[in-house]
Amino acid sequence: MKNRLVIATLALATMTGVYSCKQEKKKETIKTVERNHEDHSSHEKKTRHKETAGSITFKDDKINNAYGHYIHVKTALVNTDAKEAKNGAGMLIKALAEVENGEKATDFAKKIEAADDVEKQRQAFSGLSGEFAKMVDGQIASGTVYKQYCPMAFDFEGGYWLSSEEEIRNPYFGDKMLDCGEVKERLN
């Protein structure tokens, strides 16, 4: 009887671990090339996660530029790097000044730039993501933008974000639940 109870407990624990979004992934260090947006030169940097907007092009070069900075902010939040999120938001604000109807997105980017707390940045990023989804819809010339969703974000209210890759890298939880979420829509 004890053996059956132990086996049942182990089976339940295994199933829970497999299906849980809370399962932690081991941290990887990936060598990446990060673009310096001010002088357009490149330098190598060690980081846990990197994403570029390189495989996606938009009909409007101004949106293309802004989306690259959006991805910069998203990657900083995936890496739970508040300082880098602030830097990316500053560059995004400048890029959005050139984008038609970018005012609401700019307001959210300013909140990210002003915040030192990564959780406050993540809250503002949720609004920024909603505005970017509207901005890029119908503007993609080539490639795919993935609209992704985590049901556990913001105390189970859920949160969306955009990604250049199908693989889930959650900006709302970072390393705590890196792969929690799903692709809800493919924009192309």
Score class of each variant (00 low, 15 high):
E166P: 04
E167A: 14
T52I: 10
Y70K: 00
L5I: 15
D116S: 14
M15G: 05
L178V: 00
T29R: 05
E113R: 12
T9M: 15
V145M: 08
G88V: 01
A76Q: 03
F132L: 00
A82T: 05
A133H: 12
N188P: 11
R35N: 11
G88A: 10
G158A: 08
L92W: 03
V145S: 02
D175N: 09
K2F: 11
A53Y: 03
E119A: 14
K31S: 09
K2P: 00
T9Q: 10
D137Y: 10
D60N: 15
R186P: 02
P171M: 02
K26C: 05
G174Q: 08
A105L: 02
G181T: 03
E98M: 11
T47C: 14
A53K: 02
K104Q: 14
G143W: 05
G90N: 05
E103V: 13
K86Y: 02
Y146E: 02
C180E: 01
S41I: 04
A105Y: 08
F156V: 10
L187M: 14
M15L: 15
N101E: 15
A114V: 08
I112M: 06
N65E: 03
H40A: 14
K147R: 15
F173I: 07
E28L: 12
K147W: 05
A85G: 09
L128V: 05
V136H: 05
E100W: 06
I71E: 04
F156W: 13
V33N: 11
K31D: 09
E103G: 13
I93M: 08
Y19V: 13
F132N: 01
R35D: 11
T47E: 14
N101H: 15
V145P: 02
L162Q: 06
R122S: 08
N65A: 02
A115I: 04
D39A: 08
L96K: 01
E100N: 15
S20Q: 07
F108A: 06
K147Y: 05
G138K: 10
D81G: 01
K2L: 14
A13N: 05
A141G: 09
K83M: 11
H72C: 02
A89L: 01
A114I: 06
G158N: 05
V136Q: 04
F125L: 01
Q139H: 07
S20M: 10
A76E: 06
L77H: 04
G17T: 08
M15C: 10
Y19D: 05
Y160I: 13
G88H: 03
E44Y: 03
D179L: 07
